[in-house]
Design a protein around this nucleic acid. Sequence first.
DNA 1: GATGCTCTTTAAACCGGTTTAAAGGAGACC
DNA 2: GGTCTCCTTTAAACCGGTTTAAAGAGCATC
Lengths: 339, 339
Amino acid sequence: MTKRPTIADVARRAGVSKGSVSFALNGRPGLAQTTVDKILAAADELGWRPSNRARSLSVSKAFALGLVITRDPAVLSSDPFFPAFIAGVESVLSTQGQALVLQVVADGSEADGYQRLAQDARVDGVFLSDLRHDDPRIELLVELGLPAVTLNRPDGQSPFPAVTLDDRPGTRAVVEHLVELGHTRIAHVAGPTAFVHATARSTAFVETLAAAGLEPVAVEDGDFTAAGGIEATRRLLALPQPPTAIVYANDRMAIAGLGAAQAAGLTVPDDLSIAGFDDSELAEYVHPGLTTVRADPFRFGETAARTLNRVVDGETDVPDVELPPAELVVRRSTAAPPA
Amino acid sequence: MTKRPTIADVARRAGVSKGSVSFALNGRPGLAQTTVDKILAAADELGWRPSNRARSLSVSKAFALGLVITRDPAVLSSDPFFPAFIAGVESVLSTQGQALVLQVVADGSEADGYQRLAQDARVDGVFLSDLRHDDPRIELLVELGLPAVTLNRPDGQSPFPAVTLDDRPGTRAVVEHLVELGHTRIAHVAGPTAFVHATARSTAFVETLAAAGLEPVAVEDGDFTAAGGIEATRRLLALPQPPTAIVYANDRMAIAGLGAAQAAGLTVPDDLSIAGFDDSELAEYVHPGLTTVRADPFRFGETAARTLNRVVDGETDVPDVELPPAELVVRRSTAAPPA
DNA sequence: GATGCTCTTTAAACCGGTTTAAAGGAGACC
DNA sequence: GGTCTCCTTTAAACCGGTTTAAAGAGCATC
C-alpha cells in the first residue's frame, strides 16, 4: 500500500525527463538506444506500471470493451452462450491490459445501456449481440460514435464488421437427420421472431423440409425460455395429428419440451424425437441425451474481441469474419418415428 | 460526435471559475445559492456531464467494482447463480454511475485476476465469491489494499464484511422432507470440498440425518458439474444397498443424476427420490419436476453491491448482512421410498 | 570560425476534473 | 473613514500520463 511510483519517479531515477520515459515506454523512435535501456531498467527497478487513469485521460481511451445484456432472468439465467462468449472475450482482453465492462439492463431497454456506456465513456467499443430485425441499436451506436462489432450479420445496413457463425447448416443437418430417420411430421419451436438468429433458424428449418418435399406440422413461437418451451410443446402435442419429431431453437426449450413430453406419458425417442440447439452442458446428461447442434461460443468471443479491437484501433474496412458453422450432435433423443 | 463540453465550457457560460463549477456540482458548501443555480442551469443547457476519466484521475477512484470468476466452463456455463447475482449487482451500480468490471480467469488462478484488477486500478472494490477454506485471496486483497465483500462468511479471520445467505436451513429442510416421506437410506452428492458453501451443505446434510437417528448411505464428492453428477450417481446406484433418495448440492448435478437414474432404468420418484439445490430455471420443467432449494441470487447481488460500496466509501466496521435463508421447494422428484 | 544539419532530449502545454490557499467584496463595528 | 470579519469566489497546483515545439549537442562542411 505504499504509493505506487509515477512516471516522474522513473524519470528522476533514470536522470531524464518525463517525456523521454513516455517515449521509451511506447517505443517511440528518436531516443538513443542506451537511453531507452536506462529508462526501462529504472522502470523495472521501481516496478513502475503506467497509470491507466492518467493514460485514459490523456489519450482519451478507456482500454475497455463493453457488453450489454438484458436483465430478463430467462434470457440471462441459463443461457449457455454468454458465459462462454464472455470467457472467449476475456481471453483476448486480458492479454492486452483491457477490461470488460458489463451492463445489465432491463429487458427492452438495451439502448439505455449503450447510452450509459457511451456517456460515461467507459468503453472504447461494444459487442452487439442478439440482433433484432432492423435493430435500432445500430443507428444509435453510429450516433453515439461508439465502435462496435455485431454478432452475426444484421439485416439492414451496418457500418460495423460482423462476426458470423452460420446457424443454418446445423439446423439443416438436424432436419435432414430426422427426415432420414423417416419422420414426415416434424414441428419447430422457434425463438422470438424479433431476433435475427431465431428467424434464421426457423427459415432454415422450413426450407430444408421443403427441399425434402415436406411441410412443417407447425412452427410455434417460443421465447427461448423453458416455460415457453413447455407451452409450445403442449400445444403441439394437443394437435389432432401431433408431430413425431420436434426441433427446438435452443436446448433450454428442448429440455423443457422433453420433460413435457415425458409428463404427457410419451417415451422419447420411441414416441417422439426431440432435438435442441446449443449443445449446452446438460444436453449430454439428460435422459435420453439430447440431439442438438453445437457452436463454439468461446471462439465467437475471442474472434469478436479481436475484431472489435481492430475497429477501436482505428482500422477502417475491417472485414467480416466467418466462423465454422454449427454442427449436428446426434444423441439418443432422436430415432425413427413410431410405426 | 461534436466534442462534449468540459467543465471549462460550463464555467465560461456561467461566468464563473472552473473551481466554482466543481463545487456546485458536488454540492460543496460555500457557494451562494444564486451562483449554484446559475451554474447548474449552464451545465444543463450544455448537457454537460463530468468526465469519468478526469474524475478518476483526480480523486483516485475508478467508480467501478470488480468480479473475478473462473473460466472453467463447467463452473461458469450453466451456473444459475452468477447471472442473477450480476443482475442484482448491476441494479445497484447503474443508479450510481458505477460500472461492473468482469475478469474471467483460468480455473485456479483467481489470484491473478484480483492482482490485475488492482494493478490496473480498474476497480474500487471486489466481490469475493466461491469462498474456499482458508481462502488465500483474503490475505491477497488485504495486501493489495483492495476493499472487498465476501459472499458468505469465510472460515478464517477476515477484515471484510460478509453478506451471508444461509444454505443450511434449506438443506435441513430437504433432508427432513425425505425422512418424513419414510426414507432411511439417503445419500448426498456434495460439491468440491474446497468450497465453504459445499461443505456447509454436506455438513448440514449429515447433521440433520444424525438428528433423525440416521446415517448417510454415502457422501460422494461431486464437482458441481453435470458430468460429476452423473458419475457420483452411478457410483451410488452401484452400491450393494443403493440409496432410495439422493440429495445433490446443486441442480446441475441433480438433473444429470436424474438422467443417469432414468438411463439405469429407474423411475423417479417411485424407485429413487432426487433433490437438488438452486432452483434453476430447468428444475421446474424437467420430468419429474425437481424438488430443490431456492435462494435469491439477485438480492444477494444487490445487497453485496450496497455493502461493498459502503466499504469503498470509507465506512469502517460495516456490519455483515444476513439474507433470508434458502428454502425448500417441493416438486415431483421426491416421494415415499419403494416398499 | 561560422553555418548548417541531424540526432537527442526537454520544457511546457494538455487531457478534464478536484482541491487548497488566498484574494476580493460586503457589511459591521468603532 | 479605517479595520475586522465573514462570506463568496478564484487562481493555481495537482492527479499521471502524452505530445508538440523548440532547445541543445555533436559533427561535417565551407
